[in-house]
């Protein structure tokens, strides 16, 4: 049987443990729901906590304590994305409404992208007419992927987005990955043009975009033009490898930055792209990446 056709099936008991930590790294104090955090009344209640009937502050999620002056909050390891103004996000259009698109951004409610907060073809100062409302689907339709910035957070926690900068807009060819938002490290830059010839967007909302083509498409038309030219086989393999590397890091709970992704990509070269799907290979890549990240600090 050809090696490529081989199907690997394993029992659940033979699964690989992809956790790198065995729980002995400088253990922070963990809180679990219902646990008392503090009984003094002069503290402010932050996220992940609640006040019970006896004015005792208790944790409501499982995670680590964060204290900013008098504000106490407990941060869970994994949660839905909570937007902040200025975050870079990747999302998918789910619905078209009057003057707005609804975007799935992994948050509690769908975000809104207003027609007035996108760049339409024909320049910045164009007036938005009724005709534009009717042809909204020409620009973005259901299922399209976009990259945008959080412009505003509404009272109910839903987000309003904008794509008024040329780097934002519709995404064309590439791979979308979903990882827990807590794994994305908050940085100044979330767009990375990797030297290997891919562009990587690490969205704050946990959606990661691996774009295949590096030569930027013509952005003057408001970023709605898609480059649908054929991607060479070599580039496709590179994207697939990048995807598997990012998943390997995510599975081992290593924070994603351009550095960690590049390191993982470098370490993965001894495997073929499809071998990286096996848990042993993924764990090996994650371990080596963690080692290199450690060396860099020292």
């Amino acid at each position: 049987m050809n090696d490529e056709d081989m199907i690997r099936v394993r029992l659940a008991v033979h699964r690989t443990n992809t956790n790198l930590s065995n729980g002995d790294h400088g253990m922070p104090r963990y809180y679990t729901p219902g646990e008392e955090v503090c009984s003094q009344p002069d503290f402010m209640r932050g996220h992940g906590t609640y006040m019970d009937d006896n004015d005792t502050l208790r944790a409501s999620v499982a995670g680590v304590l964060e204290k900013v002056n008098k504000l106490i909050s407990v941060k869970p390891l994994k949660a839905r994305y909570q937007g902040e103004i200025g975050d870079v996000i990747v999302g998918r259009i789910t619905e078209l409404q009057q003057k707005r698109w609804k975007v799935d951004t992994n948050s509690k409610l769908d975000s809104a992208l207003l027609l007035s907060s996108v760049n339409l073809p024909g320049g910045e100062l164009r007036r938005r007419s009724a005709e534009d409302e009717q042809t909204m689907r020409r620009y973005l339709q259901e299922g399209d992927l976009i990259c945008a910035e959080v412009q505003n957070v509404f009272a109910d926690g839903s987000l309003s987005l904008h794509t008024r900068v040329l780097k934002y807009g519709k995404l064309s060819q590439g791979i979308l990955l979903k990882v827990p938002p807590s794994l994305i490290k908050r940085k100044k830059v979330h767009f990375h043009n990797l030297l290997i010839g891919a562009n990587l967007i690490l969205g704050n909302n946990g959606y990661v975009w691996i774009g295949a083509s590096i030569h930027n498409t013509d952005r003057t038309e408001g970023g709605f033009a898609q480059d649908l030219s054929r991607i060479p086989q070599q580039d496709r393999e590179m994207c697939a490898r990048l995807r598997n590397c990012i998943l390997a890091l995510a599975r081992s709970n290593i924070l994603l930055t351009d550095t960690s992704v590049i390191y993982a990509y470098d370490e993965s070269t001894k495997y073929s792209a499809n071998e990286l799907l096996q848990p042993e290979a993924a764990l090996d890549v994650a371990l080596l990446t963690q080692q290199r990240l450690g060396e860099r600090i020292d």
Partner: peptide, 17 residues
Amino acid sequence: LDQAVRFHLTTHDPHFI
């Protein structure tokens, strides 16, 4: 259950060295 949750937390904490 609480012990199980704590164990899960110690092994799944995202870390960046």
